[in-house]
Amino acid sequence: MFKRKLTALEYMNPDSLNINDEKCFRELIVWLEDQKIRHYKIEDRGSLKAIDSKDWTSAYKQYLTALNCPVNPNDRPAVVDWLLGLSVRFEYADNAEKYKSETAENVRNRKQSAPKVVNTNPLDALDFQSPEFRDGVNRLAQQLNIACHPDHLVTLKAISKLIRTRLSAEALQNPGEVVHQGKAYPIFEADLGFETGDYVLNNAGKALRLMYIHDLRELQTKINECIVAVQTITANPKTDTRLGKVGR
């Protein structure tokens, strides 16, 4: 919530500010006083800059009183927001002539004159809905013996999946691991488990059931891999015989 003001003030880490972190909060207060507000003389900032002192909270409250801060010192977000606003006001006052030239028109002109980034990726220039692209996808699907879907983008997804699973470098080196050998499963001869009364719907149901089982097997494989990975860590504890304990 403070990023824009911190950036304008050129704070070193505007993205990582955490006002709930005691050290981070105290360092911010000191930085604002040292760099932007400068209410105290340099020699009078010692107690505020002693962020590790047990008396820092008292010095912090005294500092807010000296600034006539209307916010409760315990309300950190409100305090930080008020101090940042005060710092921005002082920053503008110190450089008023510089910021007067920063009009909306000047900012707009700088944006228009900024160099344009030319994208060199040829894929970004493709028209995925053009007839030429659609025909190219369908011809590629025919070459790979993939049935063409009415939506050519769905066909493209099927082509991508086939290439990733069957035509990758790993798959080509070990084709036996991805291309299963043996007699094909008689999917349409299997029992569906229920009857729709329509032959075509029955076959569609059998295909969907087989796809569902395939997804379940893939999920189970990933679960097994996770279990093995966890067991690799937990099943081999280090033993410290000096302590007479087992564990990491």
Rank of each mutant, 00 (worst) to 15 (best):
R45M: 09
N72G: 07
A50F: 10
L86M: 14
T57P: 09
A78S: 02
L84I: 06
A50S: 13
R89E: 11
K54L: 11
W82K: 04
K61D: 10
P77Y: 08
K49R: 15
V80H: 10
Y63E: 00
N74I: 10
L64Q: 03
V88R: 08
A59D: 08
R45H: 06
S87T: 00
C69W: 05
T57S: 15
R38F: 03
A78Q: 06
D81V: 06
Y40T: 03
D81S: 03
W56A: 04
Y40C: 03
D81P: 10
D75P: 12
Y40L: 09
K49I: 01
N74T: 01
L48T: 05
E43I: 02
W82C: 00
K41C: 07
V80C: 08
L83T: 00
S53I: 01
V80K: 12
A66I: 13
L84P: 04
P70V: 04
R38K: 08
N72D: 14
G46Y: 10
N68A: 14
I51C: 02
L64P: 08
L86E: 01
N68R: 14
Y40G: 07
I42C: 04
R38I: 07
K54E: 11
A66G: 13
L84K: 11
N74K: 15
I51P: 07
I42Q: 06
R89H: 10
L48P: 04
N72F: 13
F90K: 13
K49C: 13
T57A: 15
R89F: 14
D44E: 12
I42H: 07
L83H: 04
A66N: 11
P73H: 05
Y60R: 05
N74S: 03
K54T: 03
D52Y: 13
V80W: 00
P70C: 02
R38Y: 02
S53C: 04
R38L: 12
A50T: 01
A66D: 12
S58A: 11
L67D: 04
V88N: 05
R89D: 11
D52H: 15
Q62P: 14
S58L: 13
H39F: 11
K54V: 00
R38A: 02
Y63W: 08
D81T: 02
L48M: 08
A50G: 13
T65P: 13
S87G: 00
S47Q: 02
I37Y: 04
H39P: 15
L84T: 00
D44I: 01
N68G: 03
L84A: 06
W82R: 01
L83Y: 12
T57E: 14
E43C: 03
L86H: 10
S87Y: 03
D52I: 10
P77S: 02
H39Q: 11
N74A: 09
N72E: 03
A66R: 14
T65C: 15
Q62L: 11
F90R: 14
K36T: 10
R45E: 06
R89T: 09
S58Y: 12
H39V: 07
W82D: 03
K54G: 07
K49E: 02
Y40P: 09
P73W: 05
T65Y: 12
S47W: 07
S53G: 01
L83I: 11
I37A: 06
T57R: 12
Q62M: 12
I51F: 11
F90N: 06
D75V: 02
L86I: 01
A50M: 14
P77H: 04
I51N: 04
Q62W: 09
V71C: 00
Y63T: 02
S58C: 10
D34S: 15
P73F: 01
D75A: 06
D44R: 11
S87H: 05
Q35E: 08
A78I: 02
